Amino acid sequence: MRIAEIDGPRLHYRIDGNPDGAPVVFANSLGTDLRLWDQVMPILPQEYCYIRYDKRGHGLSDCPEGPYSMGALVSDVEKLLDFLGVKDCVFVGLSIGGMIAQGLAAKRMDLVRAMVLSNTGAKIGTREMWADRIAAVDAGGIEALADPILERWFSKSFRDTPAFWAWHNMLIRQTKTGYMGCCSAIAGTDFITPTSGLRLPALGIAGSEDGSTPPDLVRETIDLIPGSDFKLIRGAGHLPCVEKPEEYAQILTDFLKAQGHG
């Protein structure tokens, strides 16, 4: 386990693959930690340097008092990549991680040469929706909302498997402070204008059963970037890297190879 002591919260990160390879950075979703990517890591090409991290308030990273801003989440990973000496990475962001990807690419083009926006949007939901969720979690804990959240995350067939319960447990053990803090960051974010100004290779990935960021939202977001591509993974919900890891890994591999990364 590695901890980066940066100007801000200490961040837990992990490096897989070839530490001297071209960097590929992963940012995970609200209510999950870097284990989100466990199933795709072994089946990706091992010549790349894969960097995963827990955003503030999640996993083994520090959990400062909220609310958080998207600017703070972007700044955290910016400082992490500077700490690690990373330049010109391919950045893969899922859900709130995809919002972080958009913010980082707009701020530091020297850090991001291409990006994958998975199950995300330039704007997700409304301020009112997120305010209601924050109030419900504050009053009753994440467990009170676990069932509807997990129904949006996963297809019905996956929810009937034993593996589903690991994700259920990960969600309900998430700290309220970190979860509500990141909800506030999403609520205050509208990246439609900055994302439409991006000029870099970009790929959108959606799950056909995603109830949190439906395919149309992902497609509308990735279409803001000229020359981008879009892939739909059928039979998967909000976390296709969990439900369909082989298909997800192949899509990522094809994108990395198409960029001549490394």
Rank of each mutant, 00 (worst) to 15 (best):
G141M: 07
G235L: 01
G85N: 09
P45H: 11
S95P: 01
E243C: 05
A114C: 12
I134H: 00
P214A: 07
W37K: 00
L80Q: 00
K156R: 14
C63M: 10
A72P: 01
L111R: 08
P201S: 03
L256T: 01
D20S: 14
S69Y: 02
W130Y: 13
D7C: 09
E5S: 13
E209L: 15
D229P: 02
L104G: 06
D138Y: 09
G97F: 01
I96N: 01
Y53L: 00
A135G: 13
I192W: 11
L217F: 05
R56K: 12
E5I: 07
T120E: 03
R10S: 14
L73P: 01
I96E: 06
I100E: 12
L150F: 11
K176D: 15
P67V: 08
G98F: 00
A206T: 04
G71M: 05
M170K: 11
F255T: 00
K107F: 11
D210C: 06
S196N: 08
V242T: 05
L200M: 15
P42E: 07
G207T: 09
T195V: 15
R14F: 03
V112N: 09
L30T: 12
M109Q: 15
T177S: 14
F255K: 04
M180L: 09
G211R: 03
I134T: 06
L256I: 04
E143Y: 04
E5H: 14
L217Q: 14
R133W: 08
P64S: 09
A163M: 05
R199L: 11
M170H: 08
E220Y: 02
Q39H: 12
